[in-house]
Computed example of a mutant assay.
Amino acid sequence: MKYAVGVDIGGTKAAAAVVAETGEILKKTVIPTDGTVAPEEMIERISRVISKLIKETGLQAGDLSGIGIGAPGPLDTKRGAIHSPPYLPRWIDVPVVQLMAQRFSIPVLLENDANAAALAEKWLGAARGLNDFVYVTVSTGIGAGIVSDGRLVSGRRGNAGEIGHMVVDPSFGRCFCGLYGCLELIASGTSIAKHGSVISGRTLSTKEVFDLYRAGDAAIMEFVDRVFHALGTAAVSLVNTFDPEAIIIGGGVSQVGDPLFKAVQTHISRYALDAVGRQTQVVPAQLNQSEGVIGAAALCFQPGS
């Protein structure tokens, strides 16, 4: 049996786990991502967690195929560097692979976190048996992992799939990237909480916005319907561009459930370009709580698959 360490670096927390080649998680640890310290210090903390996990699982270096890291973009997988992701503003050209390889004598691989999650869903989740699909994560930010003809579409530096900056509705105003009406500006968990708070006149979490939606708050319902419309519009563009068998949606916002999935499915069935495309299924991710670390580990077991 072979094992790998999967690391999922996010804007608020970092998770690390020892994962078997069967997909079983032997042990997992989550720590806060401390934005007040230098990235090198944060990587050192993650490295200490990895060392502790390896020791606690009783594994030897020869049992491990490597360490896979999923991280938000922009990044450069060829150089093994994280380059200024919006939710990690101090992480500018951080050579994360090099820094971690100094601590461990096993291969270290870096991939966009949405791409890693797509690999996890292909391996063990909702995309098992599919050769063409798009995994969409709707969370703090929005991104996609694209699998075409059975292989991950990464792009030149690993940044393919940044659909959060697909323009869908300029009336929402200017995104931090400079464009007007980006999907992430409208439909990310961060944006839903922000817009919902403005509408209600009090500070709300994303969950509280959706609670008001379910309770029938008219103004919130109108806003959330626009969010679903934006996600549906983006999904139609993905269907028309990549001709997938399925759109798989994960991330915290997907936990709102049926209203989101039905809205996106309806959009595709009405507006996708051709009859077959209009039948593309929209399904929930199956590994929401662990897909980050499982997908990162999958980089070591089946890189590029």
Rank of each mutant, 00 (worst) to 15 (best):
G161D: 07
A38F: 10
A17Q: 10
H267L: 00
K207C: 04
G201K: 07
P39F: 07
M100A: 07
R151W: 00
C182P: 00
H229D: 15
V138L: 04
G141N: 06
F176Y: 12
P89A: 11
L59I: 02
I163C: 05
T57Q: 07
D217F: 01
S84V: 03
G304E: 15
A38K: 15
Q279F: 00
R79C: 05
F176K: 14
G125D: 10
E208S: 02
L99W: 10
A118L: 06
S171D: 14
G216V: 09
D274N: 14
P39A: 13
F210G: 02
V96H: 11
G250T: 10
D243T: 12
D258I: 12
R156H: 14
W123A: 15
S105N: 13
R226P: 00
W91G: 09
P85E: 10
Y213E: 01
L212A: 04
G292Q: 12
L26G: 08
V236P: 02
G80S: 06
A296D: 09
A272E: 03
E56W: 06
G35M: 12
L260C: 08
A20K: 14
G173E: 08
D132K: 06
V282I: 08
E56G: 05
P72L: 07
G196Y: 10
I54D: 02
R214G: 11
D34V: 08
G10V: 10
V239E: 06
V236R: 09
V19P: 02
E121T: 13
D258V: 14
G129C: 04
S171A: 14
A61R: 15
T233F: 09
C175M: 03
E291Q: 13
A101H: 12
L130Q: 11
G143Q: 03
L110R: 07
H83K: 12
A117C: 14
E24R: 14
A127C: 08
V239R: 09
G292N: 12
E41T: 15
E222R: 14
S171R: 14
E24H: 12
A14F: 05
D243A: 12
H229K: 13
Y87M: 11
S84H: 15
A297H: 11
A219S: 15
G68V: 02
M100S: 09
K27N: 01
G58H: 11
R270I: 02
F228K: 01
G23L: 13
Y3W: 08
I46G: 11
A285E: 06
D274A: 04
T140W: 03
T137S: 10
F104E: 14
S84M: 08
A215W: 01
Q255S: 13
D34F: 00
A117I: 04
A71V: 04
S154Q: 14
D149L: 02
E40N: 08
